[in-house]
Structure formats: structure tokens, C-alpha cells
Nucleic acid binder design. Structure first.
Lengths: 346, 346
DNA sequence: TTGTAGGCGTTATCAT
DNA sequence: ATGATAACGCCTACAA
């Protein structure tokens, strides 16, 4: 490796016959510089391919630069991408740059990424916590005044600002919708237990069942974090002696998998409500009824919270809940074929 | 803002009654340290919440740390997320960390992000170029030995390693598939002109038409970068006096929009082939035939290329082409209703 | 208009 | 086993 040294201000200065300080003045449009000197410095900078070393600059000032670090569990999930996009466009005007890393939904990778960001002295740290992660180690950062913000899921073991969807109430309304259309055997296909969003949405499921006086049946709950797992789950749930008549898919992967599974089975009579919207929701048959989240709004809300913190707001940790919205498209309004299948009260 | 100073090695050292260098030894598992001293240092580090300052370290060593910067056009597009994921899992074993920024498909944001990454002295720079971007300014970096890698689209004005899909041949095969099923009036709905992938795929379209002796009709080409634009385009293309019988959707947004548009029109008789696969491709009616890309393979190929460069490979710029694959599912095999609609040779 | 001195936090080198 | 010193690239404060 040639490991060519990169040009520094001193290199540029030597080239021109001035001091590094003068080059610094040109680079930062700081103090006065003779027009002709400036010309020659600019020329030399171009020739040597000079790029200021941000690390050295930031170290000197002790100031953080204008980069915000965001940790998400999965780059391939457009939900998180959209959250990031909503945040970024809202903070761009303030000159903040967003850099994102993926934890692959593991606590260990999450910690390692957080360390990377902290070591690089980001202006603020945004985290979508993975399951089982523990954020007590961030207390010192919080105490040091680093803005800390948790998205989609709250921090574990730490009080900090957060922005989450209306998970429990959203799920409750989705299930209530199915119940209102006559269903009593309703499956819940969601993430691995241990994940905050899954717990909340599951609570919403329980809430709705309880509200309607329907007993909880553990065998109707399946895990379907990826497409194939959800597709397999729906096949199982429809295969037994007392099959479900409706399915609640508690995240976008589960919903996609459920739709794929039903398509493979050729079943169009099973009611489905998904949590989180899908681009093709309108185009599948029957069109998918969903409890839509608003990922861009989550990103924007995070931006508002963060900018306030950067502007010096010192209030205690705030928790913003972004509402969800039931979008009725057809799949959630199917009625059970055999209304008497499940016998229960009321 | 309290702007509390962060604990440094010197702080830890003072606390324990040693020198910064000794703390450094403990932190880096470098030279010998008395077990008892090490204990006390570790304790103090924990108590003070010490985190090494990567900027200072990197500056000192002149070495880049183990972070790779990646610029993508759009966080919300799972294609890029999957590319990033494929890359990351392939380089993780080498201890590299990936940080990603979004250019929002603008040359200016792309440049700004590249600057951020360069200023932070990333180990390598990966870029998915946005339309109209110019990479000549990276010549100095390349000369300085910084590994530079372009994904999905090649660099502009710079010779550098790149990994792209088999765009032209893939598109040609998709169009040929439609032609083989009797279509002669085939629409092309793709990105904005000026984008490399659109140009290549469009060439594939022209190739296939030429191969079949079908004349090119400019009016069958529409822009559909987002869902609604593509949905509107397909409505137009089906509405005229001589409507198309088949549509080639040249990217995943266009494909999604075309499917939405056809669903809204209630049309299931229009043949469609998409470029890039969709999670629900199998579930729509008719199931979507696609020319599938392999984004994870693109990421992995990039990783292989990069690791070789980091290992000192000095060969000239390499260009890897990742093959595409036609996946037949139904929509591409529909035959035109009126085979004689378009009159032409052969 | 330009230069000098000093220090940010870390580590390499050479002592002790 | 530990320390002293210098240096990385830049900027603030203060001269000249």
C-alpha cells in the first residue's frame, strides 16, 4: 500500500510560502487575506487536492461537528429507511448530516455502532433499539449533554426522549375492526417476543379481545418476523381442526408473508389486517386493510425534538406518540364463512 | 447547554495516579501493565465513563479507522438497503463498520456526503452515484490510495472499481420474453433519463425491439420514477387509440406503480415484466414476472473487491457485472388480446 | 495582512 | 512496569 500522505494545511502553506494559519484563514473565510495570496493558496489547494481534516478541527475546538448518528435494526426494511428520510429532510436546513448504521437487530452490533458514533463525536445519537439491548451505558453521555433520542421503541434502562407509534391503540383498533366484522378466532402473527413493538401490539390484541369478551387462545399466536415464517404460520393456523377466520399481521414483513401464504393456498376468504402499510396493499386481492404507521412523521417528530434540544431546551425527557390510522381496503371487512365456528359468550 | 467535558485518558490517569500512556496501554492492550494498576485504571475508566476519542487516535496515527462510508440515493428504497446489508455482512468479519448517508438522488447532496466521509477519514468510500454527479474531484483521493468503489452505477469522469447489474442484457431478455409471447406494442416506463441504469435498460429495450424487427415508437416511453407517476403513465398508455398490450417497468418503483395503476383500472389482461423483484410479486394477480436483480450479491461483490484492495491489490480498476435472472410468474406470459393490433414486418 | 505559541487527546519512541 | 517527550492537523489568542 503506497499509503500516500494526504496534503495538510502546512503542505499548502509551504507550497505558497506562507504559514498554515494563512491557509486556515482562506479555508474558513476567516480573517483578512490579500487577494493575491488567497489566489495562490486556492490554486495550491486544488493542485495538492487539499481537504481539511475534520477530525483535527473538531478535536481542536472540542466541538462536535454537525453529524447525527442513527442506528437502525435493518437497512432492508423500508420502514426504517423512511423514518431516516423524514428525519434527514427535516434537519437538513440546519446543516446537519445524518449517518446511519445497521445493528442487524442484535444488541451487540447496536453497542458497537453506538461506540463508533460516540468515538466520532456525533452531535446527537438516535437509536432504534434492538431486542434485549440495554442503554444504561449511555447515562454518562446523557449527563455530558449529548442529545439522545430513541425511535420506534423506547430506551431500555434509561430515561430519554423517544418517538414511537401508537402501537397498542393502533393494534386494538385493527383487531376491534375484525371483531366488528364477526370474527372471533383471530390469529396474531408478529415479531419475536421481547421486542417492544411486538409487546405493545400484542397488548392491543389482548385489549380488543377482552373488550369483546373473547377468550385468549395462546395457540393463535405465532411468530413471523420474515416472509417465509409468516407464510408458514398462516398455513398452520388455517390447517387445524378449528382454523382461524382472520389474521392480524403485526408488522410489514408478517403482512407480506401472510399475503404470500394466502396466495399460495389460494385462499381469498381469510380476513387480514396488517400493521404498517405496504406499497402494494391496494393492488392485492382482496386489497389489504391496514393500521398504517407514518414513518416519515416519526422522523420529522424526532427532528423537532432534537432541534429543540440542540437549541438548549433542558426539559425532562419527552415521549412523543405518533398516531396510526386504520385504512379500510377490503381484506379486513371480509366476514367469517361460518359465524358459529367459535362458540363463546355474548 | 452544560457542555460537560468528556473524560480523557489524562483524566483517568490523574485519577489513578499514573500517566496517560499507561492508560493507553490498558485501552489498547499494548505493552505490559501491572495487574493491579490495570485493575485500578479499568475501574476509573468505568467510573468516569471514559470513551477513547477516535478522532484523536486516528489523527495521531495518521491511519484511517475501520469505517467504510457508503452514499446511496434513497434510504427508503429497499434495493439499496439490501445492497448495504449484503456488503456489511460480508465485511463484518474483517472488523469494518459501514456508515451510510443518503444523497436524495442529487449531485449536490452526494458531494456533501462524500466530503463528510472524507473529512472523517473513512477507510474506503462506496458510492451509488446520483444522476448528473461528477466524480473527477475524487481523483486526488484515488491517487492517495483511498479505495473507491461505485455501486449500481459507474463513476462519472473517473476510472474506478464498480459493481453493477446486468442491466442492458437483463432488460433485453425481459422484452424478448414479452415479444415471444406475441407483443409488439410494448411500453417502457423507467427512471428519468440521465440515470445510468435507465439508459442501459432502455438500450436493452431497443436491442430487443431491433432483434425482433419491431420499430421503435417514442410515444411508448414514459417516466415513472415514483408510484403515482408510473400509475398515471400506464393509464395514459392504455388509453389512446392504439394502446399498448404489454408494459416493461424498468425499476421497482415503476413496477409497483404499474401494478397499482392496472389494479385501479381493473385491468388484468395487460402483460407486465418488471425490472427488480418485489416482495409481493408472487401475490398479485396475475403474479408478476420480473427480471430479478440480486442486490445482496452486489453488496457481497463490492465487499470482495474492497477487501482485495485493502489487502494491497493494485491492479487496474475492475468492473464486476452481477447477472440478472428472469423469474416467470404469469404477468409476462399473457398474450395480447388482439394479436393483429400492431402491423409490422415478420 | 500575516505570523507565533500553545493546546485539543492520543500514541510512538526512547528513556528510566 | 511506567514515564517523558514529541508529534498528528488544526484553530484561538495574541502579537508583529
Amino acid at each position: 500500500m503506497p499509503k500516500v500522505r494526504r496534503a495538510t494545511m502546512t503542505d499548502v502553506a509551504r507550497e505558497v510560502g506562507v504559514t498554515a494559519k494563512t491557509v486556515s484563514r482562506v479555508v474558513n473565510d476567516d480573517g483578512p487575506v490579500a487577494p493575491e495570496t488567497r489566489e495562490r493558496i486556492l490554486e495550491a489547494m486544488g493542485r495538492l487536492g487539499f481537504q481539511p481534516n475534520l477530525m483535527a478541527r473538531n478535536m481542536r475546538v472540542g466541538a462536535r461537528d454537525s453529524t447525527v448518528g442513527l442506528v437502525i435494526p435493518d437497512m432492508g426494511n423500508p420502514f426504517f429507511g423512511t423514518v431516516a428520510g423524514g428525519f434527514e429532510s427535516a434537519v437538513r436546513a440546519r446543516g446537519l448530516t445524518l449517518i446511519v448504521g445497521s445493528s442487524e437487530e442484535t444488541a451487540e452490533r447496536e453497542r458497537s455502532l453506538i461506540s463508533t458514533f460516540l468515538a466520532r463525536r456525533v452531535t446527537a445519537l438516535l437509536v432504534v433499539p434492538s431486542a434485549d439491548s440495554d442503554h444504561r451505558h449511555l447515562r454518562a453521555e446523557r449527563a455530558a449533554g449529548l442529545p439522545l433520542l430513541f425511535l420506534d421503541r423506547p430506551a431500555n434502562g434509561l430515561t430519554a426522549d423517544s418517538v414511537v407509534s401508537s402501537n397498542r391503540e393502533g393494534a386494538r383498533s385493527g383487531i376491534a375492526h375484525l371483531i366488528a366484522h364477526g370474527h372471533r378466532r383471530i390469529a396474531f402473527i408478529g415479531d419475536l417476543p421481547g421486542l417492544y413493538t411486538r409487546r405493545e401490539r400484542f397488548q392491543g390484541y389482548r385489549d380488543a379481545l377482552a373488550d369483546a369478551g373473547i377468550g385468549f387462545d395462546r395457540s393463535l399466536v405465532e411468530i413471523g418476523h420474515d416472509h417465509e415464517a409468516a407464510a408458514a404460520a398462516v398455513a398452520r393456523l388455517l390447517g387445524g381442526t378449528s382454523p382461524v377466520t382472520a389474521v392480524f399481521a403485526a408488522n410489514n414483513f408478517a403482512a407480506t408473508g401472510v399475503i404470500l401464504g394466502l396466495a399460495r393456498l389460494g385462499r381469498r376468504d381469510v380476513a387480514v389486517v396488517g400493521f404498517d402499510d405496504l406499497p402494494l396493499a391496494e393492488a392485492v386481492e382482496p386489497a389489504l386493510t391496514v393500521v398504517a404507521q407514518d414513518p416519515a412523521a416519526i422522523g420529522r417528530a424526532a427532528a423537532v425534538l432534537l432541534l429543540a434540544r440542540l437549541d438548549g431546551e433542558r426539559s425532562k425527557a419527552r415521549s412523543v406518540v405518533v398516531p396510526t390510522r386504520l385504512i379500510v381496503r377490503g381484506s379486513g371487512e371480509l366476514r367469517p364463512r361460518d359465524p358459529g365456528a367459535g362458540s363463546g359468550p355474548s
